[in-house]
Design a protein around this nucleic acid. Structure first.
Lengths: 195, 195
DNA sequence: CCTTCGCTTGACACAGTGTCAAGTTGACAG
DNA sequence: CTGTCAACTTGACACTGTGTCAAGCGAAGG
């Protein structure tokens, strides 16, 4: 869908932005630097993306398309049991986060000061949340959901526990290798949600 | 200790900043607004706090002093069993976070762009982490720590799970009332850490 | 040949941080 | 009473970054 926007200049900008954000997720990359890296004038960037927020949002969609999210999600969707679905979803997410972290972080930083960025972030998070909810519902269906947990509350828990910020906290701040993150997320999500 | 800095102008600035941050945690409050609210010229603020980061750091210390953290921590420190210590610590934290959220959020926003803010945040978080570690060690001592968890890993888990960002996520984004947050933190921390 | 589209160049307004210099005011010491 | 000093004020400035505007340029296509 959004891959139709294959305008070469636009693509150059998106690629440059992605690259810069991935290289330095914490820093707020100025538009001038994005322009320079794209090999394009600063104004041309504004011609394609009227504001910084719109550029970030477009990059978010772009990375999603490039990474073929739907394919990565297939195993989770195909899972028979709730338990398997949860495991597959966590696996997907643990693979996915590191690849989009730079872009998501940039969006997250803007979220506090920009309405459009907030909406874009919330939209992405809502999609992620749906995945969590589907897993939780599958658990519930199989009678595996821990006593005392309703579907929405369990979804909140899972969604929060697997959030980008927690990934950041555990891998970047605590220095966990990706493998440990993956393993412990599997284990702890079970502890949190299952009977 | 830092309460000795009872210089009235300084205090006015700290109070105004605290108030403004608490009133609107997300927004980046400009120095000019802090000055106006303090009833003082913008330059005078810079006379007391050379940079925005130093002001935020001072406010963080100030709020800690005002809220008598040590007193609030007493029940946790006095706990006999590991389980009681964990429960008391979570209780402390669930009471404490909402009161410092505005200030911590401001520090968190600056953390990504300012070295001093990063250091201040990390310092506060290290203190919080020590509390987590003490609780985890008490659990370990009592043989209550879940099999397969080492003290540092369990500390990372607890610390991450109880983080300011997760509080923000659950109460502000998910809309949980404070009571539910407290109750579920107690419950889930057990699930995560205990045998 | 002339238009139009996509881009460039260079200017500008605006907000916010941090700096600087000169002036005011009030307290306190001699 | 006078002089001094510290704390504060006023008003300017430089700098960075966003977003806007207007004029120009070059190549593709009617």
């Amino acid at each position: 869908m959004s891959s139709d926007d294959l305008n070469p200049t636009r693509k150059k900008i998106l690629d440059a932005t992605w690259k810069l954000l991935e290289a330095n997720p914490a820093r707020v990359v100025p538009m001038s630097e994005i322009a320079k890296t794209s090999g394009i004038s600063r104004q041309a960037v504004y011609l394609h993306f009227p504001t910084r927020a719109e550029l970030l949002i477009a990059v978010t969609r772009y990375t999603g398309d490039q990474l073929k999210v739907d394919e990565l999600l297939a195993p989770s969707r195909a899972a028979e049991t709730g338990e398997a679905r949860l495991a597959a979803y966590i696996d997907f997410w643990a693979t996915f986060i590191p690849q989009i972290y730079g872009v998501m972080k940039a969006l997250l930083v803007m979220r506090d000061s920009d309405e459009a960025a907030r909406a874009a972030w919330d939209d992405r998070m809502a999609a992620f949340r749906e995945g969590c909810e589907a897993a939780v519902k599958a658990l519930k269906r199989d009678g595996q959901l821990r006593a005392g947990l309703t579907v929405p509350v369990a979804t909140d828990l899972l969604w929060t526990w697997m959030s980008v910020r927690n990934w950041e906290n555990l891998t970047i701040d605590c220095g966990w290798p990706q493998s440990r993150y993956r393993k412990l997320m599997q284990e702890t999500a079970r502890q949190l949600l299952m009977a």
